[in-house]
Amino acid sequence: MAIVPIPPEEINIDYQKIFWSSKRIARMAIFIALSSVGAMIKVPSPTGTVALDAAFAFFSAITFGWREGAIVAALGHMLTALTTGFPLSFPIHLYIAVQMSVWVSAFEFVAKKIHLWVGALVAVFLNGPVSSLLVMPIGGVGLTTALIIPLTIAASINIFIAITAYLIISKSKMV
Protein backbone atom coordinates (compact mmCIF):
# COMPACT_ATOMS: atom_id res chain seq x y z
CA MET A 1 0.00 0.00 0.00
CA ALA A 2 1.35 3.40 -0.87
CA ILE A 3 2.08 5.75 1.96
CA VAL A 4 -0.05 8.87 1.83
CA PRO A 5 1.93 11.73 3.34
CA ILE A 6 -0.08 14.10 5.47
CA PRO A 7 -0.48 17.59 4.03
CA PRO A 8 2.28 19.97 5.13
CA GLU A 9 -0.16 22.43 6.73
CA GLU A 10 -1.24 19.71 9.13
CA ILE A 11 2.26 19.01 10.34
CA ASN A 12 2.72 20.44 13.78
CA ILE A 13 6.44 20.28 14.34
CA ASP A 14 8.19 22.81 16.52
CA TYR A 15 11.86 22.17 16.08
CA GLN A 16 12.74 23.47 19.52
CA LYS A 17 13.90 26.80 18.15
CA ILE A 18 12.51 28.82 21.04
CA PHE A 19 14.82 29.81 23.89
CA TRP A 20 12.96 27.78 26.50
CA SER A 21 13.20 24.52 24.62
CA SER A 22 13.04 21.37 26.69
CA LYS A 23 16.59 20.61 25.64
CA ARG A 24 17.90 23.86 27.04
CA ILE A 25 15.85 23.63 30.21
CA ALA A 26 17.16 20.14 30.88
CA ARG A 27 20.72 21.19 30.20
CA MET A 28 20.46 24.17 32.51
CA ALA A 29 19.01 22.05 35.31
CA ILE A 30 21.89 19.60 35.04
CA PHE A 31 24.54 22.30 34.88
CA ILE A 32 23.07 23.98 37.93
CA ALA A 33 23.31 20.72 39.82
CA LEU A 34 26.88 20.42 38.54
CA SER A 35 27.73 23.87 39.91
CA SER A 36 26.56 22.70 43.29
CA VAL A 37 28.70 19.58 43.05
CA GLY A 38 31.64 21.66 41.86
CA ALA A 39 31.30 23.77 44.99
CA MET A 40 32.06 20.66 47.00
CA ILE A 41 35.23 19.90 45.00
CA LYS A 42 38.10 21.69 46.71
CA VAL A 43 41.22 22.43 44.72
CA PRO A 44 44.17 23.30 46.93
CA SER A 45 45.64 26.75 46.22
CA PRO A 46 48.13 29.09 47.92
CA THR A 47 45.26 30.91 49.67
CA GLY A 48 43.34 27.94 50.98
CA THR A 49 41.06 25.74 48.92
CA VAL A 50 39.14 26.89 45.88
CA ALA A 51 35.71 25.55 44.96
CA LEU A 52 34.93 24.79 41.33
CA ASP A 53 31.46 26.33 41.47
CA ALA A 54 31.68 28.88 38.67
CA ALA A 55 33.51 26.78 36.05
CA PHE A 56 30.31 25.22 34.74
CA ALA A 57 28.62 28.59 34.25
CA PHE A 58 31.58 29.92 32.26
CA PHE A 59 31.58 26.72 30.22
CA SER A 60 27.85 27.06 29.52
CA ALA A 61 28.26 30.66 28.43
CA ILE A 62 31.07 30.05 25.97
CA THR A 63 29.43 26.91 24.58
CA PHE A 64 25.73 27.73 24.60
CA GLY A 65 25.58 31.53 24.68
CA TRP A 66 25.48 34.23 27.31
CA ARG A 67 21.83 33.92 28.24
CA GLU A 68 22.16 30.29 29.21
CA GLY A 69 25.47 30.99 30.93
CA ALA A 70 23.96 33.85 32.92
CA ILE A 71 21.06 31.71 34.12
CA VAL A 72 23.35 28.85 35.07
CA ALA A 73 25.61 31.27 36.91
CA ALA A 74 22.82 32.88 38.92
CA LEU A 75 20.77 29.79 39.68
CA GLY A 76 23.87 27.69 40.21
CA HIS A 77 25.07 30.10 42.85
CA MET A 78 21.66 30.28 44.52
CA LEU A 79 21.31 26.50 44.57
CA THR A 80 24.76 26.07 46.07
CA ALA A 81 23.85 28.62 48.74
CA LEU A 82 20.50 26.94 49.34
CA THR A 83 22.04 23.54 49.94
CA THR A 84 24.37 25.04 52.52
CA GLY A 85 21.61 27.07 54.19
CA PHE A 86 22.59 30.52 52.82
CA PRO A 87 25.80 30.92 54.85
CA LEU A 88 26.13 34.60 53.85
CA SER A 89 22.40 35.29 54.08
CA PHE A 90 19.91 35.39 51.30
CA PRO A 91 20.33 38.99 50.05
CA ILE A 92 24.09 38.73 49.81
CA HIS A 93 23.86 35.52 47.85
CA LEU A 94 21.26 37.06 45.57
CA TYR A 95 23.61 40.00 45.05
CA ILE A 96 26.51 37.68 44.20
CA ALA A 97 24.28 35.63 41.92
CA VAL A 98 23.32 38.71 39.92
CA GLN A 99 26.95 39.76 39.69
CA MET A 100 28.00 36.32 38.52
CA SER A 101 25.50 36.31 35.74
CA VAL A 102 26.75 39.70 34.55
CA TRP A 103 30.39 38.59 34.64
CA VAL A 104 29.61 35.39 32.79
CA SER A 105 27.75 37.30 30.09
CA ALA A 106 30.59 39.78 29.77
CA PHE A 107 33.02 36.89 29.44
CA GLU A 108 31.06 35.35 26.60
CA PHE A 109 30.70 38.70 24.88
CA VAL A 110 34.38 39.58 24.93
CA ALA A 111 35.49 36.03 24.20
CA LYS A 112 33.32 35.84 21.11
CA LYS A 113 33.82 39.40 19.87
CA ILE A 114 37.53 39.84 20.60
CA HIS A 115 39.41 36.78 21.73
CA LEU A 116 38.86 33.84 24.02
CA TRP A 117 41.76 34.63 26.33
CA VAL A 118 40.98 38.36 26.43
CA GLY A 119 37.54 37.33 27.61
CA ALA A 120 39.22 35.21 30.25
CA LEU A 121 41.28 38.16 31.49
CA VAL A 122 38.24 40.41 31.62
CA ALA A 123 36.29 37.75 33.49
CA VAL A 124 39.05 37.25 36.04
CA PHE A 125 39.24 40.99 36.58
CA LEU A 126 35.47 41.27 37.03
CA ASN A 127 35.04 38.21 39.19
CA GLY A 128 38.09 39.01 41.33
CA PRO A 129 38.85 42.68 42.10
CA VAL A 130 35.54 44.15 40.91
CA SER A 131 33.46 41.62 42.84
CA SER A 132 35.36 42.33 46.01
CA LEU A 133 34.92 46.08 45.54
CA LEU A 134 31.21 45.54 45.16
CA VAL A 135 30.86 44.08 48.66
CA MET A 136 32.01 47.39 50.13
CA PRO A 137 28.47 48.65 50.88
CA ILE A 138 27.80 45.53 52.91
CA GLY A 139 31.04 44.72 54.65
CA GLY A 140 33.04 47.90 54.33
CA VAL A 141 36.69 48.10 53.25
CA GLY A 142 37.51 45.24 55.60
CA LEU A 143 35.63 42.65 53.67
CA THR A 144 36.99 43.92 50.37
CA THR A 145 40.62 43.58 51.42
CA ALA A 146 39.92 40.18 52.88
CA LEU A 147 38.39 38.92 49.66
CA ILE A 148 40.35 40.44 46.83
CA ILE A 149 43.22 37.95 46.51
CA PRO A 150 41.33 34.70 47.21
CA LEU A 151 38.54 35.73 44.86
CA THR A 152 40.96 36.53 42.04
CA ILE A 153 42.71 33.20 42.40
CA ALA A 154 39.43 31.31 42.57
CA ALA A 155 38.16 33.11 39.48
CA SER A 156 41.34 32.34 37.52
CA ILE A 157 41.16 28.64 38.34
CA ASN A 158 37.49 28.35 37.48
CA ILE A 159 37.85 30.22 34.22
CA PHE A 160 41.00 28.37 33.20
CA ILE A 161 39.32 25.01 33.77
CA ALA A 162 36.17 26.10 31.92
CA ILE A 163 38.16 27.21 28.89
CA THR A 164 40.29 24.06 28.81
CA ALA A 165 37.18 21.90 28.94
CA TYR A 166 35.59 23.99 26.21
CA LEU A 167 38.63 23.68 23.94
CA ILE A 168 38.75 19.89 24.28
CA ILE A 169 35.03 19.23 24.10
CA SER A 170 34.35 21.58 21.19
CA LYS A 171 36.85 19.61 19.08
CA SER A 172 34.44 16.67 19.10
CA LYS A 173 31.14 17.11 17.34
CA MET A 174 29.26 16.85 20.60
CA VAL A 175 28.33 20.50 21.05
Binding site: I3, P5, I6, E10, D14
Partner: peptide, 24 residues
Protein backbone atom coordinates in the same frame (compact mmCIF):
# COMPACT_ATOMS: atom_id res chain seq x y z
CA UNK B 1 11.18 11.75 15.93
CA UNK B 2 10.60 14.03 14.05
CA UNK B 3 9.67 16.61 16.69
CA UNK B 4 12.65 16.45 19.01
CA UNK B 5 15.38 14.64 17.11
CA UNK B 6 15.69 16.22 13.74
CA UNK B 7 16.34 14.35 10.55
CA UNK B 8 14.92 13.41 7.18
CA UNK B 9 11.64 11.75 7.90
CA UNK B 10 9.28 10.32 5.32
CA UNK B 11 6.27 8.26 6.19
CA UNK B 12 3.54 8.03 8.77
CA UNK B 13 3.48 6.77 12.31
CA UNK B 14 0.03 6.35 13.78
CA UNK B 15 -0.16 5.71 17.49
CA UNK B 16 -3.52 5.41 19.18
CA UNK B 17 -5.17 6.67 15.96
CA UNK B 18 -3.08 9.86 16.04
CA UNK B 19 -0.56 10.72 13.37
CA UNK B 20 2.56 11.73 15.27
CA UNK B 21 3.32 14.57 12.91
CA UNK B 22 0.11 16.32 13.84
CA UNK B 23 0.60 16.36 17.58
CA UNK B 24 3.28 17.59 19.89
Amino acid sequence: IPHFLEGDFEGNVIANTMNTQRYR
